[in-house]
Protein backbone atom coordinates (compact mmCIF):
# COMPACT_ATOMS: atom_id res chain seq x y z
CA UNK A 1 0.00 0.00 0.00
CA UNK A 2 1.41 3.34 -1.06
CA UNK A 3 1.10 6.52 0.94
CA UNK A 4 -1.30 7.82 -1.70
CA UNK A 5 -3.57 4.82 -1.33
CA UNK A 6 -3.48 5.16 2.45
CA UNK A 7 -4.39 8.82 2.19
CA UNK A 8 -7.22 7.98 -0.18
CA UNK A 9 -8.86 5.37 2.03
CA UNK A 10 -8.36 7.40 5.17
CA UNK A 11 -9.95 10.48 3.64
CA UNK A 12 -13.00 8.34 2.89
CA UNK A 13 -13.32 6.27 6.06
CA UNK A 14 -12.64 8.99 8.61
CA UNK A 15 -15.54 10.96 7.12
CA UNK A 16 -17.83 8.28 8.61
CA UNK A 17 -16.86 9.09 12.20
CA UNK A 18 -19.86 10.52 14.01
CA UNK A 19 -22.36 9.41 11.37
CA UNK A 20 -25.62 7.88 12.48
CA UNK A 21 -26.17 4.21 11.62
CA UNK A 22 -29.65 4.04 13.12
CA UNK A 23 -31.61 7.11 14.19
CA UNK A 24 -33.38 6.70 17.55
CA UNK A 25 -35.79 3.81 16.88
CA UNK A 26 -38.23 2.39 19.44
CA UNK A 27 -38.23 -1.44 19.64
CA UNK A 28 -41.13 -3.21 17.90
CA UNK A 29 -42.06 -4.99 21.12
CA UNK A 30 -42.05 -3.72 24.68
CA UNK A 31 -39.80 -5.46 27.20
CA UNK A 32 -41.72 -8.66 27.96
CA UNK A 33 -41.65 -11.77 30.11
CA UNK A 34 -41.63 -14.25 27.24
CA UNK A 35 -38.43 -12.93 25.68
CA UNK A 36 -36.76 -12.61 29.06
CA UNK A 37 -37.66 -16.16 30.01
CA UNK A 38 -36.34 -17.58 26.74
CA UNK A 39 -33.16 -15.56 26.88
CA UNK A 40 -32.49 -16.54 30.51
CA UNK A 41 -33.17 -20.19 29.66
CA UNK A 42 -30.72 -20.18 26.76
CA UNK A 43 -28.07 -18.38 28.79
CA UNK A 44 -28.62 -20.68 31.75
CA UNK A 45 -29.25 -17.67 33.96
CA UNK A 46 -31.57 -18.59 36.82
CA UNK A 47 -31.48 -15.26 38.64
CA UNK A 48 -35.00 -14.90 40.12
CA UNK A 49 -34.79 -11.13 39.67
CA UNK A 50 -35.40 -11.81 35.96
CA UNK A 51 -37.84 -14.69 35.89
CA UNK A 52 -39.57 -15.23 39.23
CA UNK A 53 -42.43 -12.76 39.64
CA UNK A 54 -43.33 -13.81 43.18
CA UNK A 55 -39.75 -13.59 44.32
CA UNK A 56 -39.26 -10.28 42.55
CA UNK A 57 -42.41 -8.85 44.12
CA UNK A 58 -40.87 -9.32 47.57
CA UNK A 59 -37.44 -7.98 46.51
CA UNK A 60 -36.35 -4.37 46.85
CA UNK A 61 -37.31 -3.76 43.21
CA UNK A 62 -40.84 -5.16 43.72
CA UNK A 63 -40.94 -6.47 40.14
CA UNK A 64 -38.88 -8.46 37.68
CA UNK A 65 -36.28 -6.69 35.58
CA UNK A 66 -34.83 -7.42 32.19
CA UNK A 67 -31.28 -8.84 32.32
CA UNK A 68 -29.12 -5.79 31.57
CA UNK A 69 -27.18 -7.75 28.92
CA UNK A 70 -30.47 -8.11 26.96
CA UNK A 71 -30.44 -4.38 26.25
CA UNK A 72 -29.32 -4.95 22.67
CA UNK A 73 -31.87 -7.71 22.10
CA UNK A 74 -34.98 -5.50 22.20
CA UNK A 75 -34.14 -3.56 19.05
CA UNK A 76 -33.09 -6.54 16.91
CA UNK A 77 -34.74 -6.55 13.52
CA UNK A 78 -35.82 -10.17 13.30
CA UNK A 79 -36.49 -12.30 10.24
CA UNK A 80 -36.92 -9.37 7.87
CA UNK A 81 -33.14 -8.87 7.69
CA UNK A 82 -32.88 -12.00 5.48
CA UNK A 83 -34.44 -9.88 2.73
CA UNK A 84 -31.62 -7.36 3.04
CA UNK A 85 -31.28 -3.98 4.70
CA UNK A 86 -31.38 -0.47 3.34
CA UNK A 87 -27.84 0.94 3.11
CA UNK A 88 -26.71 2.90 6.14
CA UNK A 89 -23.50 4.49 7.36
CA UNK A 90 -22.10 1.21 8.60
CA UNK A 91 -22.78 -0.78 5.43
CA UNK A 92 -21.34 2.09 3.40
CA UNK A 93 -18.24 2.12 5.60
CA UNK A 94 -17.84 -1.64 5.20
CA UNK A 95 -18.14 -1.40 1.40
CA UNK A 96 -15.53 1.35 1.41
CA UNK A 97 -13.13 -0.90 3.27
CA UNK A 98 -13.90 -3.78 0.89
CA UNK A 99 -13.26 -1.58 -2.13
CA UNK A 100 -9.69 -0.92 -0.91
CA UNK A 101 -9.06 -4.63 -0.26
CA UNK A 102 -9.78 -4.59 3.48
CA UNK A 103 -12.21 -7.48 3.03
CA UNK A 104 -11.40 -9.35 6.24
CA UNK A 105 -13.78 -8.77 9.13
CA UNK A 106 -13.36 -9.69 12.77
CA UNK A 107 -15.58 -8.59 15.66
CA UNK A 108 -13.02 -7.99 18.39
CA UNK A 109 -14.97 -6.89 21.44
CA UNK A 110 -18.22 -5.69 22.90
CA UNK A 111 -18.42 -3.47 25.95
CA UNK A 112 -21.72 -2.66 27.61
CA UNK A 113 -22.37 -0.11 30.33
CA UNK A 114 -25.60 -0.05 32.31
CA UNK A 115 -27.22 2.97 33.90
CA UNK A 116 -30.86 2.07 34.53
CA UNK A 117 -32.94 -1.10 34.80
CA UNK A 118 -36.00 -1.80 32.67
CA UNK A 119 -38.95 -4.09 33.39
CA UNK A 120 -41.72 -5.71 31.35
CA UNK A 121 -43.90 -2.96 29.85
CA UNK A 122 -41.00 -0.55 29.27
CA UNK A 123 -39.90 0.21 25.72
CA UNK A 124 -36.28 0.49 24.61
CA UNK A 125 -35.12 2.92 21.96
CA UNK A 126 -31.81 2.30 20.24
CA UNK A 127 -29.60 4.79 18.45
CA UNK A 128 -26.29 3.83 16.85
CA UNK A 129 -23.43 5.92 15.54
CA UNK A 130 -19.95 5.21 14.22
CA UNK A 131 -17.97 6.46 17.15
CA UNK A 132 -14.34 6.13 16.15
CA UNK A 133 -11.95 4.58 13.65
CA UNK A 134 -8.37 3.77 14.62
CA UNK A 135 -5.21 4.60 12.76
CA UNK A 136 -3.88 1.91 10.46
CA UNK A 137 -2.57 -1.04 12.50
CA UNK A 138 -0.50 -4.10 11.75
CA UNK A 139 -2.34 -7.01 13.41
CA UNK A 140 -1.84 -10.77 13.52
CA UNK A 141 -4.65 -11.10 10.98
CA UNK A 142 -3.24 -8.52 8.61
CA UNK A 143 -3.05 -4.75 8.29
CA UNK A 144 -6.31 -2.97 9.01
CA UNK A 145 -8.41 -0.48 10.92
CA UNK A 146 -10.56 -0.92 13.99
CA UNK A 147 -13.91 0.84 13.87
CA UNK A 148 -16.23 1.13 16.83
CA UNK A 149 -19.96 1.70 16.88
CA UNK A 150 -21.66 3.24 19.87
CA UNK A 151 -25.26 2.27 20.56
CA UNK A 152 -27.20 4.24 23.14
CA UNK A 153 -30.31 2.78 24.72
CA UNK A 154 -33.04 4.87 26.29
CA UNK A 155 -36.42 4.04 27.77
CA UNK A 156 -39.83 5.53 26.92
CA UNK A 157 -39.08 8.46 29.25
CA UNK A 158 -35.94 9.30 27.31
CA UNK A 159 -33.73 8.18 30.22
CA UNK A 160 -30.48 6.44 29.34
CA UNK A 161 -30.50 2.70 30.11
CA UNK A 162 -27.05 1.88 28.84
CA UNK A 163 -24.56 1.93 26.01
CA UNK A 164 -22.85 -0.69 23.91
CA UNK A 165 -19.57 -0.33 22.11
CA UNK A 166 -18.82 -2.87 19.40
CA UNK A 167 -15.36 -2.96 17.89
CA UNK A 168 -14.65 -4.50 14.50
CA UNK A 169 -11.35 -5.04 12.69
CA UNK A 170 -11.44 -4.63 8.91
CA UNK A 171 -8.21 -5.94 7.44
CA UNK A 172 -6.39 -7.09 4.32
CA UNK A 173 -6.37 -10.87 4.76
CA UNK A 174 -2.89 -12.37 4.76
CA UNK A 175 -2.00 -15.40 2.68
CA UNK A 176 -2.75 -18.36 4.93
CA UNK A 177 0.07 -20.91 5.13
CA UNK A 178 -0.82 -24.39 3.91
CA UNK A 179 -0.54 -25.71 7.45
CA UNK A 180 -3.35 -23.46 8.66
CA UNK A 181 -5.90 -26.28 8.77
CA UNK A 182 -3.75 -28.35 11.12
CA UNK A 183 -3.03 -25.37 13.30
CA UNK A 184 -6.74 -24.70 13.67
CA UNK A 185 -7.19 -28.22 14.90
CA UNK A 186 -4.55 -27.71 17.56
CA UNK A 187 -6.35 -24.54 18.63
CA UNK A 188 -9.22 -26.52 20.18
CA UNK A 189 -8.71 -25.75 23.87
CA UNK A 190 -7.74 -28.63 26.08
CA UNK A 191 -7.43 -28.86 29.83
CA UNK A 192 -4.41 -27.16 31.33
CA UNK A 193 -1.74 -29.76 31.85
CA UNK A 194 0.53 -29.97 34.85
CA UNK A 195 4.08 -28.94 34.18
CA UNK A 196 6.25 -32.04 34.37
CA UNK A 197 9.45 -31.90 36.36
CA UNK A 198 11.82 -34.36 37.93
CA UNK A 199 9.62 -35.13 40.92
CA UNK A 200 6.26 -35.55 39.20
CA UNK A 201 6.88 -36.53 35.58
CA UNK A 202 6.72 -40.25 36.28
CA UNK A 203 3.29 -39.87 37.89
CA UNK A 204 1.77 -38.07 34.92
CA UNK A 205 3.38 -40.48 32.45
CA UNK A 206 1.75 -43.36 34.30
CA UNK A 207 -1.51 -41.42 34.13
CA UNK A 208 -1.08 -41.14 30.35
CA UNK A 209 -0.69 -44.94 30.35
CA UNK A 210 -3.95 -45.39 32.27
CA UNK A 211 -2.66 -45.86 35.81
CA UNK A 212 -2.79 -43.87 39.03
CA UNK A 213 0.32 -44.62 41.04
CA UNK A 214 1.09 -43.83 44.66
CA UNK A 215 4.68 -43.18 45.65
CA UNK A 216 6.00 -45.57 48.31
CA UNK A 217 9.08 -45.23 50.47
CA UNK A 218 11.39 -48.18 49.87
CA UNK A 219 12.80 -47.90 53.34
CA UNK A 220 9.75 -47.63 55.61
CA UNK A 221 6.91 -48.36 53.18
CA UNK A 222 5.04 -45.10 53.84
CA UNK A 223 2.83 -44.00 50.95
CA UNK A 224 2.89 -40.36 49.89
CA UNK A 225 0.96 -38.12 47.53
CA UNK A 226 1.64 -35.70 45.95
CA UNK A 227 5.08 -37.16 45.17
CA UNK A 228 8.17 -35.58 46.65
CA UNK A 229 11.84 -36.52 46.63
CA UNK A 230 12.25 -37.58 50.27
CA UNK A 231 10.22 -39.57 52.79
CA UNK A 232 9.01 -37.31 55.59
CA UNK A 233 8.88 -40.31 57.95
CA UNK A 234 12.39 -41.71 57.58
CA UNK A 235 14.20 -39.31 55.17
CA UNK A 236 14.93 -42.06 52.68
CA UNK A 237 15.19 -40.96 49.09
CA UNK A 238 14.64 -44.47 47.75
CA UNK A 239 11.15 -45.06 46.49
CA UNK A 240 8.95 -47.13 44.23
CA UNK A 241 5.22 -47.01 43.67
CA UNK A 242 2.03 -49.03 43.84
CA UNK A 243 -0.97 -48.81 41.56
CA UNK A 244 -4.16 -47.55 43.15
CA UNK A 245 -7.37 -49.57 42.83
CA UNK A 246 -9.12 -46.18 42.61
CA UNK A 247 -11.67 -47.20 45.22
CA UNK A 248 -12.32 -44.07 47.22
CA UNK A 249 -14.50 -41.92 49.40
CA UNK A 250 -15.35 -38.24 48.99
CA UNK A 251 -13.84 -36.07 51.74
CA UNK A 252 -14.98 -32.78 50.24
CA UNK A 253 -16.21 -31.40 46.95
CA UNK A 254 -17.08 -28.21 45.11
CA UNK A 255 -18.91 -27.48 41.90
CA UNK A 256 -17.02 -24.90 39.85
CA UNK A 257 -19.38 -22.28 38.43
CA UNK A 258 -17.27 -19.23 37.74
CA UNK A 259 -15.07 -18.47 35.92
CA UNK A 260 -15.58 -21.11 33.25
CA UNK A 261 -12.25 -21.91 31.64
CA UNK A 262 -11.99 -22.90 27.95
CA UNK A 263 -11.18 -26.59 27.59
CA UNK A 264 -13.19 -27.65 30.65
CA UNK A 265 -16.63 -29.28 30.54
CA UNK A 266 -19.34 -27.93 32.83
CA UNK A 267 -21.00 -28.78 35.14
CA UNK A 268 -17.64 -29.55 36.72
CA UNK A 269 -17.21 -31.08 40.15
CA UNK A 270 -13.84 -31.30 41.90
CA UNK A 271 -13.35 -33.40 44.99
CA UNK A 272 -10.78 -34.52 47.51
CA UNK A 273 -10.97 -38.30 47.48
CA UNK A 274 -9.53 -40.62 50.10
CA UNK A 275 -8.22 -43.63 48.22
CA UNK A 276 -8.53 -47.09 49.75
CA UNK A 277 -4.73 -47.17 50.00
CA UNK A 278 -4.92 -44.25 52.44
CA UNK A 279 -3.63 -41.26 50.46
CA UNK A 280 -5.81 -38.41 49.22
CA UNK A 281 -6.19 -37.38 45.60
CA UNK A 282 -7.92 -34.42 44.00
CA UNK A 283 -9.93 -35.34 40.90
CA UNK A 284 -13.31 -34.84 39.21
CA UNK A 285 -16.58 -36.55 40.10
CA UNK A 286 -18.65 -37.48 37.05
CA UNK A 287 -21.57 -39.78 36.26
CA UNK A 288 -24.08 -38.09 38.54
CA UNK A 289 -25.61 -34.69 38.98
CA UNK A 290 -23.44 -32.27 40.99
CA UNK A 291 -26.14 -32.04 43.65
CA UNK A 292 -25.87 -35.78 44.29
CA UNK A 293 -22.23 -35.57 45.35
CA UNK A 294 -21.96 -35.95 49.13
CA UNK A 295 -19.16 -36.10 51.66
CA UNK A 296 -18.72 -39.76 52.60
CA UNK A 297 -19.95 -41.00 49.22
CA UNK A 298 -18.09 -44.06 47.87
CA UNK A 299 -16.60 -43.57 44.44
CA UNK A 300 -14.70 -45.60 41.88
CA UNK A 301 -12.18 -44.06 39.53
CA UNK A 302 -11.23 -44.83 35.96
CA UNK A 303 -8.65 -43.20 33.73
CA UNK A 304 -10.32 -41.37 30.88
CA UNK A 305 -9.17 -39.54 27.79
CA UNK A 306 -10.74 -36.14 28.46
CA UNK A 307 -9.54 -34.46 25.29
CA UNK A 308 -6.89 -34.83 22.64
CA UNK A 309 -4.08 -34.21 25.11
CA UNK A 310 -5.43 -35.11 28.52
CA UNK A 311 -5.73 -38.39 30.43
CA UNK A 312 -7.09 -38.01 33.94
CA UNK A 313 -8.67 -40.12 36.67
CA UNK A 314 -12.41 -39.47 36.84
CA UNK A 315 -14.51 -40.85 39.68
CA UNK A 316 -18.06 -42.25 39.43
CA UNK A 317 -20.52 -43.04 42.23
CA UNK A 318 -19.42 -46.54 43.28
CA UNK A 319 -22.66 -48.43 42.69
CA UNK A 320 -23.86 -46.44 39.72
CA UNK A 321 -22.96 -49.07 37.16
CA UNK A 322 -22.00 -46.18 34.89
CA UNK A 323 -18.29 -46.71 35.30
CA UNK A 324 -16.83 -49.17 32.84
Amino acid sequence: MTTDEQEAIESEIYAFVGQQVYPPTPAADDVNDAMIRQWAEIMGDTNPAYIDKDWAASSIRERTISPPAMMYVWGQEGFQVTKGRAPNAMSNLVSTFDRYGYTGVLGTNVKQEYFKEVSPGDNVTIEMIIDNISERKATGRGTGYFFETLSTFTDQHGEKIGTQRFKVLKFIPQEQPAAAATEDKLDVPTRIASPRGHDNKWWWEACDDGKVLIQRCKSCGALRHPPRPMCGECNSMEWDSIESTLDGEVLSHTEIHHPKIPGYQYPLVCAVIKLAEGTNLVANIVGCSPSEVQIGMKVKGVLEQIDEKTMLPQFYPAQSGLNP
Binding site: I192, S194, P195, R196, H253, T254, C270, L312
Partner: peptide, 29 residues
Amino acid sequence: DAIHWGWYMPYGLLTPASWVAMFTQRWMH
Protein backbone atom coordinates in the same frame (compact mmCIF):
# COMPACT_ATOMS: atom_id res chain seq x y z
CA ASP B 1 5.59 -24.06 42.72
CA ALA B 2 4.09 -24.65 39.28
CA ILE B 3 4.26 -28.38 39.88
CA HIS B 4 2.19 -28.01 43.03
CA TRP B 5 -0.61 -26.26 41.12
CA GLY B 6 -0.35 -29.01 38.52
CA TRP B 7 -2.10 -31.43 40.88
CA TYR B 8 -5.24 -29.25 40.61
CA MET B 9 -5.23 -27.40 37.29
CA PRO B 10 -6.11 -30.31 35.01
CA TYR B 11 -9.27 -30.92 37.04
CA GLY B 12 -10.37 -27.29 36.90
CA LEU B 13 -9.63 -26.55 40.56
CA LEU B 14 -7.60 -23.46 39.82
CA THR B 15 -8.97 -20.38 41.56
CA PRO B 16 -8.68 -19.19 45.16
CA ALA B 17 -12.48 -19.42 45.49
CA SER B 18 -12.45 -23.06 44.44
CA TRP B 19 -9.73 -24.02 46.91
CA VAL B 20 -11.46 -22.24 49.78
CA ALA B 21 -14.79 -23.79 48.71
CA MET B 22 -13.28 -27.25 49.12
CA PHE B 23 -12.34 -26.50 52.75
CA THR B 24 -15.63 -24.74 53.40
CA GLN B 25 -17.76 -27.65 52.21
CA ARG B 26 -16.03 -30.05 54.56
CA TRP B 27 -15.97 -27.62 57.49
CA MET B 28 -19.71 -26.96 57.14
CA HIS B 29 -20.29 -30.70 56.95
